[in-house]
């Protein structure tokens, strides 16, 4: 009987799940922010994948044009102080940006999810100690944690990605923990305990699927934070190193040439801002699609 009921419930959940999924996409595409965000992120992914086809020059090729050449028909976004084509560097930079976003968010999401789940599920001292630690780390702010990590690992883009990933763990842990607490108070969870569900079943079959939608929203928004943070670290010289075509590093190289070659500063900055805007809008759109009450705001 119990098996029959569980199977029916699973079927019901699966049917509702696919209907919910169709509804989600419809709602996402119906919201202006979701649409614009999806278009920007789609363009970024396309640029990253098709970079060799789209870029007019090799991004590392010096003297692809005259040094500090202003935007022209040959070099749409001008050239830098080594005569490299700025447009090609920006197109290839999309690859690094996506990589940074995915790796950094992957690290923080996985570790934050685990920490938040353990803290929220276990309650008692384990929860108190873990969440106090998370609160303390949270108050340090991400940039200080990232600096501490870079002081340990040394500078470089890979280390910067890991540092940003570690720095955001407290945020994801906090969100997961609060969602777990809400879910634990719901009747279905109490019913599952009463039916004799084990720890594994409670965590992975009941809590996890309910935490995931929130994590999708904050993960999408988190990519924009990770991209901003990585660009910031590269701008400070702690992330990407020459000759990598990373946008933050490109901005940093433009600092001494702002008055002579403002295009070296304008275009990489615009690329970062549009990417971050894209992920922010997409995050907002996903939130609206998952929580219809948000649409009224």
């Amino acid at each position: 009987m119990v098996h029959g009921t569980t199977a029916e419930l699973a079927d019901d959940l699966a049917t509702n799940g696919s209907a919910r999924s169709r509804g989600f996409w419809r709602a996402l595409l119906a919201s202006p922010s979701g649409m614009i965000g999806l278009a920007i992120v789609g363009l970024l992914v396309f640029s990253a994948l098709a970079a060799p086809l789209l870029a007019p020059f090799d991004p590392l090729r010096m003297a692809a044009g005259p040094r500090l050449d202003p935007p022209s028909a040959a070099h749409w976004m001008g050239t830098d102080d080594f005569g490299r084509d700025v447009l090609s560097r920006i197109i290839y930079g999309a690859r690094l940006t996506l990589q940074i976003g995915v790796i950094a968010v992957g690290i923080s999401l996985t570790c934050g999810l685990l920490l938040g789940l353990v803290a929220g599920y276990s309650s008692g001292w384990t929860e108190r100690i873990l969440m106090r630690l998370v609160d303390v780390l949270f108050s340090f702010t991400e940039i200080v944690i990232a600096l501490a990590c870079l002081a340990i690992f040394g500078v470089g883009l890979t280390n910067a990605m890991i540092a940003i990933g570690i720095a955001s763990i407290p945020f994801y842990a906090r969100v997961t923990h609060s969602v777990v607490l809400v879910e634990k108070g719901k009747p279905y969870f109490e019913a599952a305990i009463a039916a004799g569900a084990g720890h594994g079943r409670l965590i992975f079959l009941h809590l996890l699927p309910n935490v995931i939608p929130t994590l999708i929203v904050i993960g999408t928004l988190g990519v924009s934070t990770a991209v901003l943070a990585a660009a910031g670290l590269s701008f400070l010289g702690l992330g990407a190193q020459p000759p990598q075509p990373e946008w933050g590093f490109m901005l940093s190289s433009s600092r001494d040439l702002i008055s002579r070659a403002p295009w070296m500063m304008i275009f990489p900055g615009l690329a970062i801002a549009i990417t971050v805007l894209g992920f922010n809008l997409l995050g907002d759109g996903v939130r609206e699609a998952l929580d219809p009450r948000q649409r009224q705001r």
């Binding site: 924009s224 901003l228 660009a231 910031g232 701008f235 933050g248 901005l251 433009s254 600092r255 702002i258 008055s259 403002p262 500063m265 304008i266 900055g269 970062i272 801002a273 549009i274 971050v276 805007l277 922010n280 809008l281 907002d284």
Partner: peptide
């Protein structure tokens, strides 16, 4: 506000520097 949230600090700084100082 959303443009402001998406704008990197350091880029906004460089733009202000370019405009008001240079």
């Amino acid at each position: 506000a959303i443009v402001g949230v998406s704008m990197p600090h350091f880029w906004l700084g460089l733009l202000l520097l370019f405009l008001f100082a240079l």
